[in-house]
Design a protein around this nucleic acid. Structure first.
Lengths: 212, 212
DNA sequence: TTGGCTAATTTTGGCGCCAATTTTTGAACA
DNA sequence: TGTTCAAAAATTGGCGCCAAAATTAGCCAA
């Protein structure tokens, strides 16, 4: 179950970030350099560079002379991130509706059904991957690359485990249906409806009270 | 006119970032390590760490074996950043109106008049500093720290020189008046009006065609 | 057995050295 | 005089070594 050795595609920092997102490196875990060195089969220096990068982007936290660690889940912070995502994604709705093409709508329909299928049969990681594919296609219609960056950054800042903490099969199916509704709203160029679905779609992950 | 020596407050990376923002390190300029070492009176290694951090946050760009450099102004990118800022700042308008207190409104009035005064008599840096003070106070009423981070990040991603490229005294005075109008909209809890002013306030910096 | 103190081990992180690469300089040739 | 190629200088960036700090282990005393 080890993460792959160093593929040349994807820097070390990205590999670590992906493992934090997926939960392979769990929240709160200390990232001992000697362990990561073996896990990723990399040199000590490259590792330290990667950790510094991730630290500057707040993907990992750092205490001098103690080391780096995966940020513990702070449910208030997660709530803020999800709320920010909802607001930002709603902000680009108008542009999506303006720029969407028929070809893109066709691809979205396909990707939505792939996701719906994965919800039934796939693993959590496969579900997430299919979900990303749908939203990546969707965001292709947003010409403002800065907004797209912000949205993906916000997406990656909530580890999968935290997103799925309160996920029931029913919620997942609702997610799948949301995708089809989004496509319908895009087709009819109904901005208000798309905004509403978007808000609901993101906010469904909110959970109630905070442990920690 | 040299930047101060190493103050302990503010990491090296922040010092460099501030100099890039202010234009002391101009767009397109190569950041030779030997020069920065002297400028900031720092060790080589600390400098390299700072540059790596800034690179990972895209504050500087990097070509292996060639070095780091300040990103050239890309007016399309600047346009995207400003548009993103407008959208994101408009997204928090509702929350600002909900949370603003009378004390904060009083402080805003003071800071707005300070800015208005600075527009007449101060340097560009003083104007920018007064402007920041106003917006910092304004954003204190936004409880979502993630949104606040995004807004400040977007602010700092456009160097002052690029912002002020097309700035006339008339535009600056308009900015000063905008601040008072924003206070008025906050007082009357007029979200639509505040959104409108915000969009205008940010978009005024857009310039026409792109050199380079 | 338990609490606290000291020694040993582990881990992080900085510094100097050197190799790889690029840029500049200089000279030979058309 | 302009161009091309080669040698020299300068610059970046990686690696190993070692010191500072922290954690763990061990020991003594209550």
């Amino acid at each position: 179950m080890s993460t792959s050795a160093v593929r040349e595609s994807g820097s070390l920092a990205e590999l670590i970030e992906a493992d934090i997102y997926s939960g392979a490196l769990a929240p709160g875990m200390w990232l001992k350099q000697i362990d990561l060195e073996q896990r990723y089969k990399c040199a000590r220096l490259a590792l330290r560079h990667a950790l510094e990068q991730l630290h500057s982007r707040k993907v990992v936290q750092h205490i001098p002379n103690r080391g780096y660690y995966v940020p513990p889940i702070d449910s208030e912070h997660v709530h803020n991130i999800l709320r920010a995502r909802a607001l930002v994604e709603m902000s680009v709705v108008e542009e999506l509706i303006q720029n969407i093409t028929d070809e893109s709508l066709a691809r979205l329909s396909y990707l939505a059904s792939v996701f719906a299928e994965t919800v039934k049969t796939g693993t959590v990681l496969e579900q997430d991957s299919a979900n990303h594919a749908f939203h990546r296609e969707l965001l292709k219609s947003c010409r403002n690359s800065v907004m797209v960056e912000i949205i993906w950054d916000l997406r990656m800042r909530v580890p999968l485990a935290a997103q799925r903490a309160s996920n029931t099969p029913a919620k997942l199916e609702r997610s799948a249906r949301d995708h089809f509704e989004m496509i319908e709203a895009l087709r009819t160029k109904d901005a208000d409806r798309l905004r509403m679905i978007t808000e609901r779609h993101v906010s469904q992950y909110h959970f109630g009270s905070g442990d920690r």
